[in-house]
């Protein structure tokens, strides 16, 4: 089902963007992990003793610090931007420009095109997060060897983040397959993931906005549940399910729709 020729061309056209985002994401992870200073947190903990902030710093570990920074903001927004740009260019932009006509004027099935392009997006994300995870793990070993880190939790944070991105890429890819115009594909394929991100961010800022948690898919990547050992498998399952359903839906809509080529 995957066409090697198309995959090669897609890789050639998209590799630069992928490299840039992978590099940025990896560097962010490395910096975040390496700047963590256990003693500084303890010092601050002493300073705020007796104030309302005491509880907050008292329980701060390396992973909980990462969970509220990298796994809440940087590690989420950068891959989202990458997904938005790539998903649109994989299908909708080519239909909009008309260059899809050249692929379809060869004996290539529409389903082959979708499967090939979707595979590229998924593989690109898998490799991106593998590199990020490995780099984070090595940084942990090199800079934080004296800090007690639960490696299993660290891995689960990364797997959860990947599953969230898999589901988000499903949204962007679906609208790229559905829409004939780039602007429409971007309106939904970028608008929805960005709205989810903002809702999640706002809901964590203030208690009055916590209701927004129920309107964002990002809440299914529950870092607190992972670190506190609660049951989070059902959330992972839902994210995986959303992604799979959306990719299958992309295939169905693209096979059935009229192409303005």
């Amino acid at each position: 089902m995957i066409n090697g020729t198309i995959f090669k061309q897609t890789l050639r056209a998209n590799i630069k963007l992928w490299l840039i985002f992978t590099l940025v994401l990896t560097l962010l992870q490395v910096v975040m992990v390496s700047v963590f200073d256990d003693r500084m947190i303890t010092d601050i903990g002493h300073m705020v003793e007796g104030t309302p902030l005491a509880g907050f710093f008292g329980q701060t570990t390396l992973l909980s610090m990462l969970a509220s920074t990298f796994y809440a903001i940087h590690g989420v927004i950068f891959p989202i931007i990458y997904i938005i740009m790539t998903a649109n260019s994989l299908i909708a932009a080519q239909v909009d420009r008309g260059s899809m006509a050249y692929l379809l004027s060869t004996p290539t099935k529409r389903s082959t095109i979708i499967v090939t392009q979707a595979s590229y997006l998924i593989i690109a994300l898998v490799v991106m997060f593998c590199i990020e995870t490995v780099a984070g793990f090595i940084t942990l070993q090199v800079f934080q060897s004296d800090v007690d880190v639960v490696i299993a939790d660290f891995m689960m944070l990364n797997i959860g983040l990947f599953l969230l991105m898999f589901a988000i890429s499903g949204i962007s890819f679906f609208f790229s397959s559905l829409c004939n115009l780039s602007k429409n594909s971007l309106a939904f394929g970028a608008g929805i993931p960005l709205a989810f991100f903002l809702f999640q961010l706002l809901s964590s800022v203030d208690d009055s906005l916590e209701v927004l948690r129920y309107f964002t898919m990002n809440a299914l990547f529950d870092t607190a549940a992972i670190l506190e050992g609660e049951n989070y498998w059902w959330q992972f399952g839902i994210l995986l399910g959303i992604g799979i359903v959306l990719y299958i839906a992309s295939l169905v809509v693209f096979k059935r729709k009229d192409l303005p080529l």
Partner: peptide
């Protein structure tokens, strides 16, 4: 049967939009 038909068909689009 679009993809089967393309095996023996040559199509020149009205608008040039090459990759």
């Amino acid at each position: 049967n679009a993809s089967t038909i393309q095996e023996t068909l040559g199509y020149l689009p009205g608008e040039v939009a090459l990759p």
